[in-house]
Write a protein that binds this DNA or RNA. Structure first.
Lengths: 160, 160
DNA sequence: GTGCTATAGTTCATATGCGAACATATGCAC
DNA sequence: GTGCATATGTTCGCATATGAACTATAGCAC
């Protein structure tokens, strides 16, 4: 069984909390990938689908929400287009912008996947009580906002 | 500014907590990568170094602690060997096992990096109070252990 | 000891992730 | 309107990540 035993003796709660966040994130991502297998989508493909709309969303907005660089999305979008789930449309108002648009097939797939996804996440988080989930949420929110506003900010989704 | 605004209205604390864990993990990993830049190491390279010893650690033990597959480590170890920071040694007791051994150069590099790493993590986590860090730690620990023991376990570091 | 099963590592194909460099387009100062 | 700084996407080189397939070794039942 994988554990954090080799860290427990440090008695440094900051470090342990940090390690736990990363380990939990890894575990949850593995579950997520596993859930998606039957759909033929990878996790980042699902993430892009999930942030797209039939009307179209600028690629940069998607990359900001995914906290990644635009350059990551090019190839993933290409594969989603290959599957017929999204299209690229030029933005008439700003010729630099590419809108990522859900196709009917993409919309339909999302309609079937999203509820299962939400249910999976809720089920997994419910190893904690409702109260604990709320406490955890508030602490994470505080941490996240603190990290955003700290002076050492490095924006991973900035353009270089 | 990157935010979770597009999620806030869901009022589903489980889902939001889940998203926060992943977003925070991404942000922290970005900081970590940034910290390591001057050392010429990537994050996974540092992770392997950090779990190695001069006496040697089985590769599989490292992959378990990193929650990844052995196959990921082969190439990373190759690069660390190329930098002269570790070596591969055969385990005399089990000829299947490869021990990853820190070289003197690797030991020295780690001695200089580890304190900075710990200080960085502590500094970033300290946007929360000591009490909050403790609460967060305990909740994360409970979540992590709950995830481990749930019936939907998929072990990412198992051998296939 | 034979055979079956499990473990340790590597290799391969494919998909991402990162960061630099680039082309295009916008916006604004002047 | 020119010039310059900025924003949007793509392309490229490299390092990882995933999962399947494969080799070698170990352990155990018999």
């Amino acid at each position: 069984m994988t554990t954090l035993d080799h860290l427990k003796s440090t008695a440094e709660p900051e470090l342990e909390a940090y390690m736990l966040i990363r380990q939990i994130s890894t575990v949850l991502e593995t579950y997520h990938r596993y859930d998606l297998r039957s759909s033929g989508l990878t996790a980042p493909q699902f993430a892009i689908l999930n942030l797209s709309t039939p009307e179209g969303v600028p690629l940069t907005l998607i990359s900001h929400r995914m906290q990644c660089d635009n350059s990551n999305l090019t190839g993933i979008v290409d594969r989603l287009i290959g599957k017929g789930l999204v299209t690229r449309q030029a933005d008439p108002n700003d010729r630099r912008v590419t809108l990522i648009c859900l196709t009917p097939a993409g919309t339909e797939l999302l309609r079937s996947l999203r509820p299962r996804y939400h249910a999976s996440v809720k089920r997994r988080m419910q190893v904690l009580s409702h109260t604990q989930v709320h406490q955890l949420h508030d602490l994470l929110q505080a941490l996240y906002q603190g990290l955003q506003s700290s002076d050492s900010v490095v924006d991973p989704s900035r353009n270089r």
